[in-house]
Simulated assay, not measured.
Amino acid sequence: MKITAIRAHRVELPLHEGTYKWSGGNAVTIFDSTVIAVETDAGITGYGEVCPLGSAYLPSYAEGVRTGLKEIGPKLLGLDPRDLAVLNQRMDQAMRGHPYVKSGIDVACWDILGKATGLPVVTLLGGRFGADFKLYRAISQESPAEMAKRVHQYRAEGYTKFQLKVGSDPDTDIDRIKACAAELQRGDVLIADANTGWLMHEAARVVDAVRDIDVYIEQPCMSYEECLAIRRRTARPFILDEVIDSLAAVLKGQADLAMDVINLKISKVGGLTKAKQIRDLCQALGIAMTIEDTWGGDIATSAIAHLAHSTPPELLFSATDFNSYVTRSIAEGGPTRNHGRMAASTAPGLGVTPRAEVIGPTVVNITG
């Protein structure tokens, strides 16, 4: 089997709630997502999706996905898409860095491998643990009262884990955490995610002010070293996200006891192949994980579901269902939330088929 073509489609994903806000005054109203199709001479086509969280979150941006595909795509024609290690080596040789560009191709090739073997990707990633898994809900940065109302709303939808977007004025963030904590019921989990938004002195004030609240602190500062310093000043459980981008980063964090949980984003590390490597390392080291991506629709959410569902429940801190945040379904067969839980498809591959009328025309067309 050989890759004969790589095509990309640009699709806009509006949000149900209008705007998603996080640290630094950043906000997105319509997500710019890229659907990637990898075609083969066996008549099997695999699909992936990459949707950066704007251009100010990580070193990635939507148009960069499509531009990068034009650079590395021609160098992948003729490869067997089932040879995932070979494929990833070729991509890394063709372009240093830019893992988000490579992610959609890698995911599409896992989709092909599943379709070729007649197996769902969850089976290829290690097997399905249980019937489903828990989700978290991200709560966009608003006033303390409005965010507390969202906790109440989302609990009624079945969620029990709530990730608050903080990382702005420390006093307001303290009020946000306290207001939302007051809404919690027994068994609920609260995460204060600063998305690198605090300076060290601000983070120090916040973690001290919430020292008696049952809340997880996530990625308070920009650098690993700053986060580690704050970690050592608080007894609250600690999550690292933006700085966890490789096996080496996980090993360093484990050696320094820098975190209790990591956030593993598929496109941040370059696709399912490298995400699985990190997941398996965390499993061996006993590090809990939230498995997700930067954003996306049905295809990205499906990839999340397969990786999350193949992760031992005791190490799966949470996962996310981004396709429920947006107003457009871009593929048939996408996983759906059921009372705060989700399951991976049992169909071969990712189990999704893009809706041609939604994803629109081809904007990148790479053929031999």
Rank of each mutant, 00 (worst) to 15 (best):
K2R: 11
A8Y: 08
L13F: 02
H16P: 13
G18W: 06
G18H: 10
W22E: 07
S33D: 05
S33M: 06
G46L: 13
G48K: 07
C51T: 03
L53I: 12
L53T: 08
L53Q: 08
S60F: 01
L69I: 15
I72V: 13
G73F: 03
G73M: 09
P74D: 02
G78H: 06
D80Y: 14
P81D: 14
D83Y: 14
V86C: 15
Q89K: 12
Q93S: 15
R96P: 04
I105P: 12
I112R: 00
G114W: 11
G114Q: 08
K115S: 06
G118K: 01
L119F: 06
P120K: 09
L124P: 03
G126T: 11
G127D: 09
R128A: 05
K134A: 11
L135H: 12
Y136I: 02
A138I: 02
A138V: 01
E142G: 10
S143V: 00
E146N: 01
A148N: 08
A148F: 02
A148L: 12
A148M: 07
K149R: 12
R150I: 07
Y154F: 10
E157P: 11
G158R: 02
D169Y: 00
D171I: 02
D173H: 10
D175G: 05
D175E: 15
R176C: 01
E183L: 10
L184D: 05
V189K: 09
A192G: 06
N195K: 00
M200T: 09
A204K: 14
V206M: 09
D212V: 07
I213K: 05
E218S: 14
M222V: 15
E226R: 10
I230D: 07
R231M: 04
P237V: 11
D241A: 06
I244Y: 14
I244W: 15
D256F: 15
D256H: 13
V261A: 12
N263R: 14
S267V: 10
S267K: 06
K268T: 00
V269L: 04
L272D: 04
T273F: 05
A275G: 14
K276R: 11
K276G: 09
I278F: 15
I278M: 15
D280A: 14
Q283A: 13
G286A: 14
M289R: 08
A300H: 03
T301S: 12
T311K: 04
E314V: 04
L316H: 11
A319E: 05
D321P: 04
N323Y: 00
V326F: 01
T327H: 04
G334F: 05
A344N: 08
T346A: 08
A347C: 12
G349C: 12
V352D: 00
T353Q: 14
V358C: 04
T362Q: 13
T362V: 13
V363P: 07
T367L: 07
